[in-house]
Design a protein around this nucleic acid. Structure first.
Lengths: 351, 351
DNA sequence: TTGTAAGCGTTATCAC
DNA sequence: GTGATAACGCTTACAA
């Protein structure tokens, strides 16, 4: 294991030597502390000394060992972001917003994919508690209200999403109810009276349940009866499911003149499914989605949608996490923040 | 800094105690080594001892300190994946494929966004060399052939992409030339004779240049002259640029009956742009993309595309990286792997 | 302005 | 099967 300590070299792997701060110090004729001070831009180093150290660092090819630094500092400068999938437009955009917000606060972000399983989400939590990250932003899709207590950890965590409210953690949520109500109201304002909603299962408190509630409120506001046949629940909130269900709805003879989809992915599928069966959007049926993913603007017809304030939510989540990291006051009450939204009107409802 | 060592508690942050292996050891009446052996599932621990240790661990709420372990082991069990953007369908799918491949090899993946800037890409490289990751898969978009030498590092790196060939690193590339030739040939086979290509600037060796070369070859194969007016270079390979340029092409009076777009994002934009000016796809113009992103199947019309073997490329990249990690033979020749592809025919070329 | 000493929490080594 | 010891490479605290 030891290989020529005297020579000033140690190796982890055959043939590859690792330069330490000590070796730089020896080469520059200073102590290791001075090297450390140079690395960390501490003021109390003479220009000349600094130059000598820097020269030695370059010459030897020195690289900090982040693991050692993290161990010593008890901080990593990195936060974890756990999302269900990296290959979805929505979570991609969310991740980009979080990265941007964290960067402004000099934090790195490490993205972790959970596949929406409760186990993986708890794993991510563990890793964070294991001091791999200074804190974790968890976009919960697998864990539910019943698991709220498991989030009672002595480590900074912010929950993003709609499955856990009032838990023992800070929480940033979407404006589900109001936004869905507005989306449905928009369809009503365009003359729709038989408005379907396409959502996921609503056993738990989650995105689908909240958005369904908004839909119902809007219909009640307008005095339009809620027809259970128009509540279409699908297994996954993806394009394939949206397309298939839209075709089924049309072929079953169900009468509808509008569809509110709880995600843009579903809505993209619906546009496709309606095209398959020759239903014209927006002439015969109007469609609105939720999330305003980047591609919605470029679909044919372009897709009306709810634009949630990704950037605002991301900034808030990062802020909350940083607060917890810097001042972990276990007794502090936990924040619940709900983002804002706007209705983006495009061709799919503009007929 | 020290807070009641006697009580068995130490704290990094006010009010938050951190349980160490030592404390578990004391509580279980064993040495810290035995605890370590239990944690790491070493065989040489008596069942009874193991039980006692596990009980103490649970009782005290022990969590490994990953930083300490990484420092001691010289390994992190994590590889870095540096991609230009996390909010693009293509890179999202690529990341998902890499994560899946790495998971099969018991490696975690940390995703890093570079924004396609050379500096960020070199940053990612540094972090990896700083032993934050065991190795790095770098999807280069900012660095070019001229920077190849900067990749000569004593640390495992695999380059993914088309901007650096024959560099001092392992390299996994797309089948650009053949696939573009096949895409163009497909348009020819559907009767197109005035085929435009939409690509990025081609100053350097990169995706656009290689795909343009494939396009030219296919035309030459078929004896169709290459009209420079049909080579449309745009600034970014995104939807917005595709849409704008398609409109401009149509409005300028340029005659074309097919468009080969070097990314599906461009192609989505083109479909939109052509719709804006009332050109019917595929009747008047046929369109084919490249990448076969998930949404292409659901567009109206659905988009023909080149399906690169993401999974195969991802698996290969991870394999190569693992080889380098496990047996860092600096002298080994560097591998160049080119993936396979298939042409996926959909409505946009099927008229 | 610079150096000394100690220790962050873990695991490899080797002795028992 | 278990334990004592010594690092891993770095930075905080304090002394010079």
């Amino acid at each position: 294991m030891r290989a020529g300590r005297e020579t000033g070299f140690r190796s982890h792997r055959a043939g590859v030597s690792v330069v330490t701060i000590q070796e730089v110090a020896k080469a520059a004729g200073v102590s290791s502390m001075t090297v450390s001070n140079v690395i960390n831009d501490h003021p109390n180093v003479r220009r000349e000394t600094r130059a000598r150290v820097l020269e030695a660092m370059t010459r030897l090819g020195y690289r900090v060992n982040v693991a050692a630094r993290n161990l010593r500092k008890g901080r990593t400068g990195t936060i974890g972001l756990a999302i269900p999938e990296v290959d979805s437009a929505y979570y991609g955009q969310l991740a980009a917003a979080i990265i941007a917000a964290a960067e402004r606060r000099d934090l790195r972000v490490s993205i972790e994919q959970t596949g929406a399983s409760p186990e993986s989400e708890l794993d991510a939590l563990s890793l964070s508690r294991n001091r791999l990250y200074d804190g974790l932003i968890l976009s919960a899709a697998g864990l539910g209200q019943a698991d709220a207590e498991r989030l009672r950890v002595d480590h900074p965590v912010v929950i993003l999403g709609d499955r856990i409210f009032g838990g023992p953690v800070d929480h940033v949520a979407m404006p589900n109810l109001d936004a869905s109500r507005a989306a449905t109201r928009h369809l009503l304002s365009r003359g729709c009276r038989r408005i379907a909603i396409m959502c996921g299962a609503v056993e738990e408190i989650d995105t689908s349940r909240l958005r369904l509630a908004g839909y119902r409120l809007a219909l009640e506001d307008a005095g339009v009866p809620v027809d259970p046949a128009l509540v279409q629940q699908v297994g996954r909130l993806g394009m394939r499911e949206g397309a298939r269900r839209a075709r089924e709805m049309a072929e079953s003879g169900l009468a509808f003149d509008g569809v509110f989809c709880v995600t843009d992915a579903l809505a993209m599928g619906v546009l496709r499914g309606l095209a398959d069966v020759g239903i014209r959007v927006p002439d015969q049926v109007k469609v609105i989605g939720f999330d305003n993913v980047a591609s919605s603007e470029f679909l044919v017809p372009s897709l009306s949608s709810i634009d949630p304030d990704h950037d605002g939510m991301a900034a808030r989540a990062v802020d909350l996490l940083i607060q917890r990291i810097e001042q972990p006051e276990p007794s502090t009450r936990h924040a619940e923040f709900v983002g804002s939204f706007s209705v983006v009107i495009r061709e799919s409802t503009d007929g």
